[in-house]
Design a protein around this nucleic acid. Structure first.
Length: 491
RNA sequence: CGGGGUGUAGCGCAGCCCGGCUAGCGCACCUGGUUUGGGACCAGGGGGUCCCAGGUUCGAAUCCUGGUACCCCGACCA
């Protein structure tokens, strides 16, 4: 087969870029750092959205929409929040253009300067909490469990398709609660939903845990995260859920009458996942032939390619294909029949491999004669010839098997690339040769964490929820530690 | 913001150092034919403000000055 992708081994990030382009997921736009998400890439996002939205609603959440613009003054109300986001905000200063008086073109009309500049949301806590102030008077108004699907803008220095773009799509949940306990439970509930989504739908094993103080969201008391391991040995933060305490309630003066007639500040959470998940999907499963999609998120799960010598033969094949499609659809399987006469079969095979379609069926004259179909699976690239009779059952089973197989492949990879280390020298050595997750003891201080980051670029990805109590010594300072945390190089 | 690089057809590039006639190659595209079980082949064809502005020159894609855009590497981040 003609090689169209740079291989992972040769240049991982070039492989990634090639794949995004060749699988028709996205392309660079005229605006620096912003991408055009193409129909095939967007279809994957729609699948993700549909599933997450369902899970949010099943846990009592509702969708709403808040404005793109945030008054500048809102931003300064929560100190840690400004600190975290100020350096990457796009600001609207004017509201009108006019023809350039000195010639051709168009200029910003200096007379149309805004009294108060507007920030384009990098996240919506501030605009939402200024709104919640009006919604909440009493404990009877609580909890508020809102989610919004939106775009946000963070003016990043360097961008990468899906992993870090100036504008990106995401969902952000913002909830308000009566008690700290309830808010903490919500924070945990949502990180569990992200973890379930990652594992059951994206087929990516993740580690749930808490962020260290350094890595916490700006304005949060606690940040929970799911961390996934990519094939190049780097970690990718794939979803976060924050316990915001009463910080935003205090900043926006959101108090409620308690059950015993007193006034108290509301407790808050926020949680989000973005189009970055598409980056995770690519980097977790794909190979040098292209994308490998988990069946549960593939825009189409099955593609059917006819092989024919003339139009009469195509018509004959199409009749059979129609029967197959009816049977597959009856089982809820999404299927595409590519009967374009403008591309040859070999071209189509390569194309759908690049696009990661889980199962491909090919039908030609030989199959018409024998009552068979050629079945090819994307994850292993295996092909077999199967009888047509129970093809729907066979495909359904195969899709399930593929979903399981790519998960266990990713799980095995992570297991092989998770290392327990006790010495800092060993850590430094393996970090750049082997990569992956490192379980190590840490003294719990920011100073040590920062030192490690400065010396090795590795960060604490999380303090896993399921880490076992174990007495040990910090690999750097030798001070006592009670559990291991996860270090890795990260995106 | 620091360091490096590149702007020539839709995409990827050569040409530039050493100025010269009609600006070239691969892919893609269009037409016709033969093909079609792993990215077909042959023949013909279309497509360019050579990033922008100014300068040097008989003559500029090529030399000079200024601008601008994008990419890569760092610090920042989902």
């Amino acid at each position: 087969m003609a090689k169209v992708l740079t291989s992972k081994e040769e240049n991982y990030s070039q492989w990634y870029n090639d794949l995004v382009a060749k699988a028709d997921l996205a392309e660079n736009s005229a605006v620096r750092g912003c991408m055009v998400i193409k129909p095939y890439g967007y279809a994957i996002w729609e699948k993700m959205q549909a599933q997450l939205d369902k899970m949010f609603k099943e846990t009592g959440h509702v969708n709403a929409y808040f404005p793109l613009f945030i008054p500048k003054s809102f931003f300064s109300k929560e100190a840690a929040h400004v600190e975290g986001f100020a350096k990457e905000c796009a600001v609207v200063t004017h509201y009108r253009l006019k023809n350039d008086p000195d010639g051709k073109g168009i200029v910003v009309d200096p007379d149309a300067k805004l009294e108060e500049e507007l920030i384009i949301r990098p996240t919506s806590e501030t605009i939402i909490w200024s709104t919640y102030k009006n919604w909440i008077q009493s404990y009877r108004d609580l909890p508020i469990l809102c989610n919004q699907w939106a775009n946000v803008v963070r003016w990043e220095m360097r961008t990468r398709m899906f992993l870090r773009t100036t504008e990106f799509l995401w969902q952000e949940g913002h909830t308000a609660h009566e008690t700290s306990q309830e808010a903490l439970e919500e924070t945990e509930r949502m990180i569990n939903i992200y973890a379930t989504f990652a594992e059951d739908f994206m087929a990516i094993p993740v580690i749930k845990g808490a962020k260290s103080a350094n890595e916490r969201f700006a304005g949060a008391l606690e940040t929970y995260t799911i961390e996934a391991l990519m094939q190049d040995g780097k970690a990718l933060q794939s979803g976060t859920s924050h316990f915001l305490g009463q910080n935003f309630a205090k900043a926006f003066d959101v108090q409620y009458a308690t059950r015993d007639g007193k006034l108290d500040y509301v407790w808050a959470t926020s949680w989000g996942a973005s189009t970055r998940l598409i980056g995770a999907l690519i980097m977790a499963h794909s190979d040098n032939n292209g994308l490998v999609l988990p069946p549960k998120l593939a825009p189409y799960q099955v593609v059917i390619v006819p092989i024919y010598k003339n139009m009469e033969q195509l018509a004959e094949i199409s009749v059979k294909v129609e029967e197959i499609m009816v049977k597959l659809r009856a089982r809820g399987i999404s299927v595409k029949y590519d009967n374009r006469d403008t591309q040859r079969p070999g071209w189509k095979f390569a194309e759908y491999e690049l696009k990661g379609v889980p199962v491909r069926l090919a039908i030609g004259p030989r199959d018409l004669e024998n009552g068979t179909v050629e079945v090819a699976r994307r994850d292993t690239l295996e092909k077999s010839v199967e009888k047509l009779e129970n093809i729907d059952q066979l495909v359904e089973n195969l899709l399930e098997a593929i979903q399981k197989n790519i998960y266990s492949k990713a799980f095995k990879f992570r297991a092989e690339n998770t290392t327990i280390v006790d010495s800092y020298d060993e850590f430094k050595k393996l970090l750049n040769t082997k990569g992956g997750f490192f379980l190590a003891h840490w003294d719990g201080t920011s100073e040590t964490e920062i030192r490690i980051k400065e010396e090795t670029k590795a960060t604490i990805r999380c303090i896993p929820f399921d880490s076992v109590e174990e007495e040990g010594k910090c690999m750097v300072t030798g001070k006592p530690s009670h559990r291991r945390v996860i270090f890795a190089l990260a995106y």
